[in-house]
Simulated scan of single mutants.
Amino acid sequence: METQNPIPCLLIFFPMFFIVYLIAYFIVFRTWSPKIRPEASSCLISLAHGTPAVFLSTYAILADPATGFASQNTRFQNTVLDYSVAYFLTDLLHYIIFFPSDVLFIGHHLATLFVFLTCRYVASRGAFAILSLLILAEVTSLCQNVWTLANARRRDLEFAAKVYDLLSPPFYVLYSIVRGLVGPYFVYRMGAFYVGGEADGLIPRWVWVSWIVVVMSAISVSILWISNLWVELFRARTGNLEKKTR
């Protein structure tokens, strides 16, 4: 199925995300504090990637009725993978330049790029699994980025504080369901397929094993992150309740 040279796609998508980042940093958030401008700019390119990636991935999967965990990637599926590779490369540069000590996020981006690149360039199969995981990862992107921007300004903007307080509970619920329930279930099905030998001779074992390890690690970190946020929210709401009852 693969007849398209992937390089031109990356040459289009990478500059696109880089330009969006520059526009965010120098125009959209130019009046924001230098401490939070980089993070806000990262949120904007994440917005430019996340929700579109969900729709593109969904279409790429549905457009191929024969797709499966070991199916050969279609041309459009590879294009969507290129799209995400370009985003993560741009955001990786952001972290290396502005937050070089943030080893967790840099490691996350490198691991994610490894998964996309091996699916795209090494195996040329398994896009159904990787794009499905991309959907699960990015379906909360819009909500999460708005929440992140509101969190960055909530101490100096009353509106941002209201958005943050209003958005936190539903965002936490949605994120918990996707990352704590749906994600692990999908990885279980994915792992059962590969361990069962269905991909033998199609996808190198070291490739799919590395995919499972990376995804399980990412889900574990996500569950830990959202658990900490739930604890913080509970403490904050309990503290406010105690103040009102005094």
Score class of each variant (00 low, 15 high):
190 M>W: 11
44 L>Q: 02
24 A>N: 01
133 L>R: 05
152 A>T: 14
210 S>F: 03
240 N>G: 05
118 T>I: 09
132 S>R: 03
153 R>Y: 04
226 I>R: 00
23 I>A: 08
136 L>Y: 08
85 V>Y: 03
84 S>M: 12
72 Q>I: 15
128 F>R: 09
41 S>V: 15
56 L>R: 13
239 G>E: 14
140 T>H: 12
120 R>I: 12
239 G>D: 13
62 L>H: 03
83 Y>C: 07
59 Y>H: 10
55 F>G: 03
65 P>A: 02
69 F>G: 06
182 V>Q: 07
52 P>E: 04
170 P>Q: 06
225 W>Q: 11
52 P>S: 02
53 A>N: 06
123 A>Y: 09
205 R>D: 11
179 R>P: 04
220 S>G: 08
16 M>N: 05
61 I>F: 04
152 A>D: 07
96 I>A: 14
84 S>N: 14
141 S>K: 01
94 H>W: 13
123 A>N: 01
177 I>H: 00
120 R>S: 10
191 G>P: 01
117 L>Y: 11
150 A>Y: 06
46 S>R: 03
20 V>Q: 03
143 C>I: 15
29 F>I: 14
25 Y>S: 05
24 A>S: 09
237 R>A: 00
1 M>T: 00
154 R>S: 15
198 E>I: 08
150 A>W: 01
116 F>K: 05
160 A>M: 10
145 N>K: 02
214 V>W: 10
71 S>M: 07
206 W>V: 13
231 V>Y: 08
195 V>L: 13
227 S>C: 13
62 L>Y: 01
184 P>C: 13
27 I>M: 08
83 Y>M: 10
225 W>F: 12
55 F>M: 10
126 G>M: 01
139 V>W: 03
123 A>L: 11
97 I>C: 06
156 D>M: 10
26 F>C: 06
224 L>F: 11
218 A>P: 02
3 T>S: 01
142 L>R: 07
60 A>L: 12
72 Q>H: 15
246 R>Y: 12
194 Y>P: 08
78 N>W: 04
172 Y>I: 15
165 D>I: 07
45 I>L: 09
61 I>L: 12
156 D>L: 14
110 L>E: 05
245 T>K: 02
83 Y>L: 09
62 L>D: 08
48 A>S: 15
200 D>W: 06
192 A>N: 12
132 S>D: 13
119 C>S: 01
99 F>T: 04
103 V>A: 10
80 V>A: 11
31 T>C: 03
80 V>P: 02
164 Y>V: 15
180 G>Q: 10
85 V>G: 00
105 F>I: 09
30 R>W: 04
155 R>W: 08
22 L>V: 04
143 C>Y: 08
75 R>I: 14
18 F>Q: 12
108 H>P: 00
142 L>E: 14
30 R>C: 05
202 L>R: 07
58 T>Q: 05
78 N>F: 02
163 V>E: 03
10 L>T: 12
33 S>Q: 03
122 V>I: 08
174 L>M: 09
244 K>V: 10
11 L>Q: 00
122 V>T: 14
121 Y>R: 05
245 T>V: 07
155 R>F: 04
160 A>I: 15
50 G>S: 12
221 V>G: 08
242 E>N: 07
9 C>F: 14
20 V>A: 10
3 T>R: 02
116 F>G: 07
225 W>T: 14
103 V>L: 10
112 T>E: 01
